[in-house]
Nucleic acid binder design. Structure first.
Length: 407
DNA sequence: AAAGGACCCAACCGCGCATCG
DNA sequence: CCGATGCGCGGTTGGGTCCTT
């Protein structure tokens, strides 16, 4: 049985908005605001429209300072970079592009940008193969973020990169930057998509494959596998859990602590852990630590570093700013100032990623199960895993984390 | 000039989550 | 603790416009 419709579909107008309707909606909202209730709004102003339709019309078209069309190269680059980093979280991407709506960006991506990138990829692949065969000089490789004129690359594309014969060596582009929300006086670079690995990731996301991957020391999950939406994950072979599905869906602390768990792998990975510590030492997330670590059923240390970037650079700033941490004897739960909504919103924004945090002597994982948390019960549908102190000791750098033990 | 395919984008739809009582 | 309701999001669709043959 489906849910009840949000309005009486028989008695509401659908389809394109007339100038009169636009004018009514616009003038009302400009004078009175939305009143906090979109559903009731159309009745108030005598519009025979569904409340959701009014909301959409306002947000995507009528509200002030909306830009339509004419995406700049900088915007293209930013969209691509963010897409690599966080996928199709259009609202988050839109938040980085003033005047753009999520709908606009989504349409632009689906109708133009994606095709442009894939088209370039195919074209360049074919051209590179031809040039390679003929021993010709490499030229025009990337433009509009992906294809720009290369001044330093005269390399045979196959020889240039042993990881993928498809990709010639890429010149370095200027990376766009966005404000650092935790330190407003600084700017941070958006994860770039102008390097080989990022473009590769992007194209995999778009459905491309790199059949040579098994020749290097990287596991590239087949995109036809169970978690097809997470095809960007790369994981060093020697740290790849034997069964990620089992580990993350049986929700067993024992499994999480097993030697096959990436948690255990993390413990043996000082460099990665140092990165975590670095971010937490630089007040990106307040006096505590919270990292989104897992995505769906697959996780990896490789992904972890990317997830850090997501959290620090790309997350909605309000969500970060509101975070604070509560401690108890054995757990630490990330919360915002007034309710748990920020925490759960953060999880919401990142789909089924999870939260990892530590404080005191222990480490805790909070992660949503397949049943979403509902109501105000944060722990409902969640599983917690408390890592005992001796396990924490395995985490290189944990003991030096300044928040450890501080309540 | 006409037909039909391709493209584009505003709008719709359903779902997950937050809030409230 | 639970159900009802509203909001926001991402995916999809329908139809207008453009392009190609």
């Amino acid at each position: 049985m489906g849910r009840a419709p949000c309005c009486d579909k028989a008695n509401v107008k659908r389809g394109p908005w007339s100038p009169e309707e636009d004018s009514k909606l616009k003038s009302y909202i400009e004078q009175h605001g939305t009143g906090g209730n979109w559903i009731a709004l159309p009745q108030k102003i005598g519009l025979k429209r569904c409340g959701k339709s009014c909301r959409l019309r306002w947000l995507n078209y009528l509200r002030p300072n909306i830009k339509h069309g004419g995406f700049s190269e900088e915007e293209d680059n930013l969209i691509c970079s963010l897409y690599i980093s966080i996928g199709s979280r259009w609202s988050i991407i839109a938040a980085q592009l003033p005047g753009r709506t999520d709908n606009d960006i989504k349409n632009y991506w689906n109708t133009r940008l994606k095709k442009k990138l894939l088209g370039k990829h195919r074209k360049e692949h074919q051209a590179a193969a031809r040039r390679s065969a003929a021993g010709l000089k490499q030229q025009e490789i990337i433009k509009r973020g992906l294809i720009i004129s290369s001044s330093n690359s005269m390399v045979n594309p196959v020889a240039a990169d042993s990881q993928s014969p498809y990709w010639p060596e890429l010149p370095v582009l200027q990376v766009p930057s966005i404000p650092n929300y935790s330190s407003p006086n600084q700017e941070v670079a958006v994860p770039s998509f102008n390097d080989h690995a990022s473009i590769r990731k992007l194209l995999i996301k778009l459905g491309g494959r790199f059949h040579s991957d098994h020749h290097d020391n990287v596991v590239q999950p087949n995109i036809q596998d169970v978690y097809s939406s997470n095809a960007d994950i790369q994981l060093p072979v020697d740290q790849f859990p034997s069964s990620t599905h089992q580990i993350y869906h049986e929700e067993s602390a024992a499994n999480m602590l097993s030697s096959a768990s990436p948690i255990a792998a993390l413990a043996s990975s000082p460099d990665l852990f140092a990165q975590i510590n670095h971010f937490n030492n630089t007040d990106h997330a307040g006096d505590g630590a919270a990292l989104h670590m897992f995505q769906g059923g697959q996780s990896s240390n490789y992904l972890l570093t990317e997830e850090l970037k997501d959290i620090v650079y790309n997350i909605n700033p309000e969500k970060l700013d509101g975070l604070e941490f509560l401690y108890s004897e054995d757990i630490m739960i990330m919360m915002n100032d007034s309710s748990i909504s920020s925490t759960t919103s953060t999880n919401t924004s990142y789909g089924d990623r999870s939260t990892i945090g530590w404080g005191g002597d222990q480490m805790q994982l909070v992660y949503p199960t397949s049943v979403a948390a509902s109501g105000s019960d944060y722990h409902q549908g969640m599983q917690r895993m408390i890592m005992p102190q001796d396990q924490c000791a395995n985490f290189n750098g944990l003991s030096s984390y300044p928040g450890a033990g501080v309540q």
